[in-house]
Design a protein around this nucleic acid. Structure first.
Lengths: 242, 242
DNA sequence: TTATACGATTTGTCTTACAAATATAATTAT
DNA sequence: ATAATTATATTTGTAAGACAAATCGTATAA
């Protein structure tokens, strides 16, 4: 029955119990708000000790799938999609490959948001962006202050009205910041050159597209705005294939 | 020192220990491959029992952050970004709002991938897509067989060369499938009408853009290909605001 | 009937115990 | 003396028991 033991990298009882719990919820069509049996019942039903059962429950509790109030027992709840991810997005912990992947992910997502942005944008959004851009124009070259850089892009995410996307960007943001700093010798010269030749797409330029309702201009502008990232990722991917 | 107790929704010792462990790894600059102290040391250092410590470790083990081999102790490992998410993307468990958000996320991402696709695409990719498209043209109207529908889009993700994006799409795919089925009364008529008036962008059309190297055509095609989703999401968001 | 107090139940935490696995030390054989 | 084997110790995985804290329900008293 239990020939899982063969596997080398040690599938523990806790792993199995966790999976069985998920299957149990699924096959019984349990969803947010539904109560689940108490610990002792679950433990005996699954034939494991309370400690093992609790370790498995603890995992699901971390994901927000289970809520528990003392004495009243446990309830299923709507889990947080990204709570697990949030804990581990730590540049130190992730390989370069993963960091590059995340950066690529972010760029694709942000450019792909264009349709949604133009579907939802209104005057208040424009005003907010205008304020951010004004406060950002202090440094000479291509660089904004990190805070307005952050605010501008966050606002764009906000305009989509998609809270999952917003949460996602907040989590992966440190990766962009980290890579930009770590590879500044790569990015700074490129952006300076773009600024010198007038090809750099600034936040102000992007805002102008939004104001004019020029969707294609905005999309193109965003792609150019991320130009340095594209060439960076292309280069890094190739250098990894060697 | 520990005034966390004030919070209502019960922050347990396990929650605190989990966070302390993450902080410990971070502040000691520990990363994949580094060994960490044994359970008893950690437990006494944190002033908690082994059971609490183990519940916290179990969570991090689930995310792949910690690997452990009996007797040899525990090592840090590169965590899986999306392993936590994978367990909970279950349409039953998620609210409609979250499901819609995920669908919007997917659409934005897939359209935003255009640049990357055109950066990486080669003859072999085109051939693969051609094969998929050929096998898909069996039904009349706008509908492909689900399997080729899946294969085509998966191939697009694959062309990006970004394994994080690929993993992500594999996880959230059930949501699109689920919504398409659940709201088929909405989607089918729209697609039929588009097909009737010749405005439906098929996989074959998209492939043609790829073959011709027509990036803007492809991007536009993708947007149209997802047209029904956009109007659906727009409609659903508005109806929620009431 | 309402308010208080008591008891029962369930989760949170700690402790102890033991099995399984394996690294290290000790012992034996060549 | 070196290699092979055995024994020992250590560490994680699992189980079980105990108790505190919280709270729900009930019983008792005003």
């Amino acid at each position: 029955m239990n020939d899982l033991r063969i596997v080398n990298h040690q599938i523990t009882l806790v792993d199995q119990v966790e999976e069985k719990l998920l299957n149990y919820f699924k096959s019984n069509n349990l969803g947010p708000g539904d109560p689940i049996p108490k610990e002792l019942e679950l433990a005996t039903a699954l034939g494991v000790g309370r400690s093992v059962l609790r370790e498995a429950l603890s995992r699901l509790r971390m994901l927000g799938l289970i809520e528990t109030r003392t004495r009243r027992g446990m309830l299923l709840a709507e889990p947080s999609l990204l709570r697990g991810m949030k804990r581990i997005v730590e540049p130190n912990m992730l390989s370069d490959k993963t960091l590059f992947n995340i950066l690529g992910f972010r760029v694709a997502l942000e450019i792909g948001m264009t349709e949604m942005i133009f579907q939802n944008i209104n005057k208040a959004h424009i005003d907010d962006l205008e304020d951010i851009v004004k406060r950002g124009i202090v440094k000479k070259y291509s660089e904004y202050t990190p805070v307005t850089e952050y605010e501008f892009h966050t606002k764009l995410y906000e305009i989509t009205g998609n809270s999952t996307i917003m949460e996602f960007q907040a989590i992966i943001r440190p990766v962009s910041v980290f890579l930009k700093e770590r590879f500044k010798d790569y990015f700074l010269p490129i952006n300076k050159e773009l600024a010198r030749t007038g090809k750099l797409v600034s936040h102000k330029d992007l805002l102008d597209f939004l104001r004019k309702g020029d969707k294609e201009g905005f999309r193109k502008g965003m792609i150019d705005h991320f130009g340095a990232y594209y060439t960076f990722l292309k280069h890094e991917n190739h250098s990894e294939e060697d």
